[in-house]
C-alpha cells in the first residue's frame, strides 16, 4: 500500500475477520456489518451483549466481537429481558429471524415489547425458514412456494403473512419500531440509520426498539442472488412497507 493511500472504510472493531457461513446472496452479512458499525460509532462495544437466535444466524457470535449468549428457539427476548433487568448499564440486543421471532417466539417478543424492555431487536425477515431448508414461515408471501407449501402458501389454510412491525407498533407502550431493507445501496443506508437509531434509543434508556429488515434467501427461494433482490422489491415491499411505525416521542391518545 502506497503511503499516500487513504483508508476510507475499514472493518468495524465489532466485526470479526472470520469468514461467515452464509450462502451467496444472503444479506445477513450486510446486516451484521450494520450492527457492528452502529455499535462502534456509538462507542458501546465493550458494554454490549448480544443474544443469538436459533436459525441461520445462530453463529453470529463468531462474527461480532461482543459478548453473546445463545438462546433457545424464539426465546431471545426473554433472555434479553432477564439480562438487561439485572444489568441496565449494558447494551443488549437480540438478532432474530422470522421463524424464530414471528412463529415460535411470538409470545416472548410481544410481551417484551409490551413491557417496554430496554433492549434492541434486529429482526431479519426473509419470508422463509433458512437453516432447516426452506419451510414456510409466518412471513412467507401468499402463493410463495416452500418445501412445506409446495403448491404455494394457501392463505385460506395458513392465513396471511404476519406484519411484525405493524403488529408491535399497535401496542400502547412507547417504542421505536421501523422496517427497512438491505437489497440496494440506498436501502442499506436507510437500514444503517434505523439500526443505529434503535441502539441510540436504548443507550438513552428510552424504550424498546425493533428494526425489521427485509432480507433475501436465494438458496431457499430457488433463484439467483440478483433475482432475489428484485423479488424483495416486487413481492415483499408492497406487502411489507418500509418506514418508521412508532417512535417514543409520539403522543398517543
Amino acid at each position: 500500500m502506497a503511503k499516500d493511500e487513504l483508508t476510507i472504510l475499514g472493518r468495524p472493531e465489532s466485526l470479526s475477520d472470520n469468514i461467515t457461513h452464509y450462502c451467496p446472496g444472503c444479506t445477513h452479512g450486510i446486516i451484521h456489518r450494520l450492527v457492528a458499525e452502529s455499535i462502534d460509532e456509538l462507542g458501546v462495544r465493550e458494554r454490549t451483549v448480544g443474544v443469538a437466535p436459533v436459525g441461520c444466524a445462530v453463529l453470529i457470535y463468531n462474527y461480532l466481537n461482543v459478548d453473546f449468549m445463545e438462546s433457545p428457539h424464539g426465546r431471545a427476548p426473554a433472555l434479553a429481558t432477564g439480562f438487561k433487568r439485572l444489568r441496565p448499564d449494558m447494551i443488549v440486543f437480540t438478532y432474530q429471524g422470522d421463524g424464530d421471532l414471528a412463529s415460535i417466539g411470538m409470545s416472548e417478543i410481544i410481551h417484551a415489547a409490551n413491557r417496554g424492555e430496554k433492549f434492541t431487536v434486529v429482526f431479519v425477515n426473509n419470508a422463509i425458514y433458512g437453516m432447516t431448508g426452506g419451510q414456510m414461515a409466518p412471513t412467507t408471501m401468499p402463493h410463495q412456494k416452500t418445501t412445506t407449501s409446495p403448491m404455494g402458501r394457501d392463505v385460506s389454510l395458513s392465513g396471511y403473512p404476519i406484519r411484525v412491525a405493524e403488529l408491535l407498533s399497535s401496542l400502547r407502550t412507547p417504542a421505536y419500531i421501523a422496517r427497512t431493507a438491505v437489497h440496494t445501496p440506498i436501502h442499506v443506508i436507510d437500514a444503517k440509520q434505523k439500526i443505529k437509531r434503535a441502539f441510540a434509543y436504548q443507550i438513552q434508556g428510552k424504550c424498546f426498539s425493533l428494526v425489521e429488515v427485509l432480507s433475501t434467501c436465494p438458496t431457499n427461494w430457488g433463484i439467483a442472488p440478483d433475482a432475489a433482490t428484485r423479488w424483495v422489491t416486487d413481492n415483499m415491499m408492497p406487502y411489507y412497507p418500509l418506514g418508521t411505525f412508532k417512535t417514543p416521542e409520539e403522543e398517543i391518545a
Partner: peptide, 15 residues
C-alpha cells in the same frame, strides 16, 4: 407471560 418465558428469563439473567 408464561413459564416458558420464566425459564428463559432465568437463563438470560443467570448469564
Amino acid at each position: 407471560e408464561s413459564e416458558v418465558a420464566v425459564g428463559n428469563m432465568l437463563f438470560g439473567a443467570a448469564c
